[in-house]
Design a protein around this nucleic acid. Structure first.
Lengths: 73, 73
DNA sequence: ACATTATGCAATATATATATTACAATAATT
DNA sequence: AATTATTGTAATATATATATTGCATAATGT
């Protein structure tokens, strides 16, 4: 039984820049710190669904638009 | 400035029963304990996006199908 | 060149997601 | 009715998401 570590990807940075927002501005919109946004964009944090939903709302994107599982070939 | 606490809703229980799975079976599929599934279904946990993606995969549903923000009227 | 803004990153602290164990309550089966 | 399977819940422990502070670096504007 081999457990494959799933890889979670996101488009937060792309969607944020499209909206003309800085990390700090987005952070304030969703109620977290700039560092948290930076680490999520860098793929180093596994955010909670509550934060993901707030990010989607602030970026006018659905969860499915922003977050997905990278398929293991 | 009044901060409204967002309410996160989910359809895990409905989707799980539709698939004919017990909490324990779903828990094993996604690699958590039965208690974690029970608490998520009861709306008492705010799961990570990684777990949400694995739940969606196991239940053949997208994130948007399962998780949403309850709108404040 | 200088000042300002935006981002990266590291160390430590705190809050909370999740595990573990256990028991009670309810539903389903025989 | 008795047994078994499923779910609810509580107490404590652990892992990790997030905050806080600070500094370095890159980008942008004057």
């Amino acid at each position: 039984m081999v457990f494959i570590e799933p890889v979670i990807k996101n488009k937060i940075k792309l969607a944020r820049v499209e909206k003309g927002l800085t990390q700090e501005e987005l952070a304030e919109l969703v109620g977290v710190t700039r560092q948290t946004i930076g680490l999520i964009e860098a793929g180093k944090y596994n955010p909670t669904v509550k934060l993901c939903l707030l990010l989607g709302k602030s970026l006018s994107k659905s969860l499915d638009d922003i977050f997905w599982l990278e398929e293991e070939n």
